[in-house]
Nucleic acid binder design. Structure first.
Lengths: 148, 148
DNA sequence: TGACGAAGTTCCTTGAGGGAACCCCAAATG
DNA sequence: CATTTGGGGTTCCCTCAAGGAACTTCGTCA
């Protein structure tokens, strides 16, 4: 889609967009995460063009985010999240939290997420991986890194 | 770009993509967050087409993510994050964490993030907003919500 | 042996992104 | 006063990606 190749930029956001920045890709990951793992199911659930779905699935498999797995003796395949892909679900959960807060409107969020550990309907919050205190836009400093 | 209108879907991911899912939008937010706030600066920094930059800035202002603010007697403007936009930086920080881990390669991450509270170079982790324990793909259950 | 169904592939049309050139306006400069 | 400069866009044209419908392939089943 975008003719500018984000994968070449020295920016982890751009590189991430190069993997899941194309239209539909995050929604495809959401479906696979939610158990909608087959071509026909995803196509019907999202209403995406078959051509584009083929392109996206191939791209996500190439980048190691999804895995193509046969599920029958016939040529039938399911798509599953790899470890790399499973960790991308973190991004989806933050998008869900933001969308629920700012865009859900009066009807409320369309899907609820129950934390398996505490049993409560909840949402994610960000903490510093080092000290476990809240970590948001207001309390980080940016420094040049080795790959810059 | 995508002719399918994601904003109409009953899905918070799709609705979030309707705001920042178009190409370049997350990179524009990153620039504004990092202090690159003027049209010419953003255009030069990203190498984005001026036409597309105009469209994206207008869209982000319309959706309440950015604020257009005059900075001179002349007709000159800076773009700043609103509260709504500042909270979107959470999504960027998760993308950065994932990109740093899976795509940075041998050179290492291009930018480092120091947590202001503990002073350490760090990255974000996700916790349950309710019990503060880790919350990832593996330990959430999906339930239908009121807006579904 | 014909129908079926999953998983694509092909083809055409439309519209979004890239890029360069151009425009407008206020201040600074001569 | 006339002219240049520089920020912030706008216009135009070209290419390529998204949408959508029809078609293909291959193994199973009636």
């Amino acid at each position: 889609m975008q003719r500018t190749d984000f994968g070449q930029l020295a920016c982890s956001i751009a590189r991430t967009l190069d993997v899941v920045g194309e239209p539909w890709s995050p929604l495809i990951l959401r479906d696979v995460f939610a158990g909608v793992t087959r071509f026909e199911q995803i196509q019907a659930d999202l209403g995406i063009s078959r051509k584009v779905l083929t392109e996206r699935l191939n791209h996500l498999v190439e980048r190691g985010v999804l895995e193509r797995r046969p599920y029958d003796n016939r040529p039938r395949y399911e798509y599953h999240l790899t470890e790399k892909g499973t960790e991308l679900v973190d991004m989806l959960m933050v998008m869900i939290g933001w969308g629920d807060k700012w865009l859900a409107g009066e009807a409320g969020p369309p899907v609820l997420y129950r934390h398996h550990d505490c049993g409560e309907i909840s949402h994610v919050d960000l903490v510093c991986a080092h000290c476990r205190e809240p970590m948001h836009a207001g309390n980080v400093d940016l420094l040049p890194g080795p790959g810059g």
